[in-house]
């Protein structure tokens, strides 16, 4: 059974469009989302309590529903590795500074990982299935898996699936101390991470939502075929071959490989070793060039894969030369060589 994409809503550092510049870091090694005017999308009475990540998630979810012409979802599933860091920090700071006295509930209530999924349900008065996955760089993959299983179970016909993580200042400062990010930032667009040979990456963020269904939409035949995660797998080549074989595919059938190279010289070699001998001649694109590194970046990659499979226009020279209508797109991501994942999309 295939899972079709009926609608999408994306808030990201980059969306393809004639006037949209390629994303560039500012003074820090991070790519920031281009955010919409939330007041156009969300009731101001609700907005007043929402932190940035909740706004991003809720707005992207509503946009995906509008795109799919769905008014009431039959399930809501979200993924977030970091959760609602801003509210967590607000509450934690006050708790420490005020020695646990005179604290107010709003930041605490909004700090739970299921805030976004709950908020969407509350806005829509949606009593349906509601779940949130929060397992690092598996979060989106497992939320997608849950959505696909629900649709296969046949009791519902659509699911809202979304992944949200924001890079907020404090988290950035802490992760920077772990040495995750590049020390020197060049001016201008980031360029292809595959060309970098220094340690560290560039932080990213985003909210990516999908409306999924088992029936194809009128205007598109793009489907998500499968998703798989691997925890500290060692050699990924046998896993990739087995995964493709389950769908009667060989590496040469993959019209485009979207891999998760993030420009960190310490970890990008893993992609080269895995691809060697499997994908030597396939067109390859590093999707983190457009969204930066964050745990649920594969949600953006999934959206990008669908966008490309639909034959929609990308800026000239961005995608690999000679890329034809790809037919099958494979997303291969690893997060610090611990969490590896594969997502397969096809024109069905």
């Amino acid at each position: 059974m295939h899972t079709f994409i009926h609608g999408t809503g994306v808030i990201a550092p980059y969306l393809p469009g004639k006037d949209n510049p390629l994303p560039a870091p500012d003074s820090q090694p991070r790519l920031r989302c281009i955010e919409p005017d939330y007041k156009q999308l969300i009731d101001t009475r609700l907005l007043r309590r929402m932190s940035r990540v909740v706004r991003m998630g809720t707005a992207a979810a509503l946009t995906s529903m509008k795109d799919a012409c769905v008014e009431m979802p039959e399930a809501i599933i979200t993924a977030t590795a970091y959760g609602c860091t801003e509210d967590t920090e607000t509450f934690l700071t006050k708790m420490i500074v005020q020695n646990e006295q005179m604290l107010t509930p709003t930041a605490f209530i909004q700090s739970t990982h299921n805030t976004i999924a709950g908020q969407i349900a509350l806005m829509l008065k949606c009593h349906a299935y509601n779940n949130t996955f929060t397992h690092r760089a598996f979060s989106f993959e497992h939320a997608l898996l849950d959505a696909m299983l629900l649709l296969q179970e046949g009791e519902i016909s659509n699911v809202i699936l979304g992944a949200v993580d924001e890079m907020q200042d404090t988290r950035f400062k802490i992760l920077e101390r772990f040495g995750l990010y590049k020390r020197a930032v060049q001016q201008g667009p980031w360029g292809d991470p595959a060309q970098r040979d220094s340690p560290g990456t560039i932080a990213g963020e985003g909210a990516t939502f999908f409306v999924l269904s088992t029936s194809p939409p009128a205007a598109s035949n793009i489907c998500i075929k499968d998703v798989r995660t691997f925890f500290k797998p060692g050699d990924m080549q046998p896993n990739i071959l087995a995964f493709l074989a389950e769908h009667h595919l060989k590496p040469s059938d993959i019209g485009l490989l979207l891999w998760g190279k993030n420009g960190d010289a310490r970890y990008d070699g893993v992609y080269d070793e895995t691809a060697r001998g499997l994908f030597d001649t396939n067109p390859v694109f590093s999707f983190k060039r457009l969204c930066g590194e964050y745990p649920v970046a594969t949600a953006y990659a999934t959206w990008l894969a669908a966008f490309i499979l639909q034959g929609r226009e990308m800026p000239a020279g961005l995608l690999p030369a000679g890329l034809q209508a790809p037919g099958h797109v494979l997303i291969y991501n690893h997060f610090y060589n611990i969490h590896h994942s594969l997502i397969l999309l096809s024109a069905c």
Partner: peptide, 11 residues
Amino acid sequence: IRDFITTISTA
């Protein structure tokens, strides 16, 4: 355990 590892958070 390696085959599948996940975490759910719904309060």
